[in-house]
Amino acid sequence: MADLSITAANVLPGAGAVTEDGLAGATITAGQAVYRDTDNSYKLADADAASALIRTARGIALNGAAAGQPLKIQKSGEITIGATLTGGTTYYLSGAAGGICPLADVGTGEYFHIVGIAKSTTVMLLALAYSGVSG
């Protein structure tokens, strides 16, 4: 397997969605995992980044935005992620900036950060948890 192939137009908040508004600090596409940088802008989270801040996803982008544009992220609750999921599978932050993948695709040297658990083939329950441990 590989990173989820997300269709941005199909990313939607679901039941119990907790969201947050801010500004993009980079070009971001709906469905990508983001972190909040020290300047309070959102940028793409990355499981193999040198900085723990960048490896700690704060949420999933609900819309696309270029740097300086408004961005809404989802921090918890159910999300229609816009990709085909395997129910019951736990998904992780990937080594590709903003990417989400199953455990089997967390590579050597990448840090384990749970993004969520698939409730169905389309809905994920966000459960953001950074372990601080690399594989």
Rank of each mutant, 00 (worst) to 15 (best):
T121E: 12
I73H: 07
Y111W: 07
A45M: 06
E78M: 09
E110V: 03
T84Q: 13
F112K: 11
A9S: 15
L12Q: 13
A30L: 03
T84M: 06
G87Y: 03
Y92I: 02
T38Q: 07
T90W: 02
T84P: 02
T56G: 07
A15S: 08
V115D: 00
I79G: 04
V123R: 05
G31T: 13
A127D: 15
T29H: 11
A17K: 02
L93P: 03
K43A: 04
L44M: 11
I60K: 04
F112T: 10
D21K: 15
S41L: 07
K75G: 01
G59S: 12
A65N: 10
Y42I: 09
I73Y: 05
A2C: 11
T56P: 01
S76Q: 11
A57K: 00
F112M: 06
A96K: 09
A83Y: 03
A96W: 00
Q32E: 15
I81F: 07
V18R: 14
Y92N: 01
T80Q: 07
L93T: 03
T27H: 12
A97G: 08
H113T: 05
A15D: 06
L103F: 11
Y111D: 12
R58T: 09
A9H: 08
I100G: 07
A97E: 10
A30P: 03
V123P: 00
G116L: 00
G98S: 05
L53E: 13
E20P: 02
T29D: 14
G82Q: 11
M1P: 11
G116I: 01
M1C: 11
L126M: 05
T56Q: 12
A83K: 09
S76D: 08
N40Y: 15
P70R: 10
T90H: 01
L85K: 06
G68F: 06
A57I: 04
A52W: 05
F112V: 14
L12E: 10
G82W: 08
A49N: 13
S51Q: 14
I100H: 01
G68S: 02
A66P: 00
A52Y: 05
T38L: 02
P13T: 14
T90P: 00
G14D: 13
G95E: 10
T29W: 10
E20H: 09
R58C: 10
A61P: 09
Y91A: 07
A67T: 13
I6K: 10
K72L: 09
E110H: 13
T122F: 05
G88I: 03
G31H: 05
A127P: 01
A24I: 12
I73G: 02
R36P: 01
G22Y: 07
A83G: 12
S41M: 10
A67G: 04
G82E: 12
L23C: 05
A104L: 04
K43C: 01
L4R: 04
G59P: 03
L44Q: 14
L125F: 10
I81M: 10
E78H: 09
R58D: 13
L93E: 07
L93Q: 03
E78R: 13
V34N: 01
A26L: 00
A45N: 01
L12N: 12
A2S: 15
T108C: 02
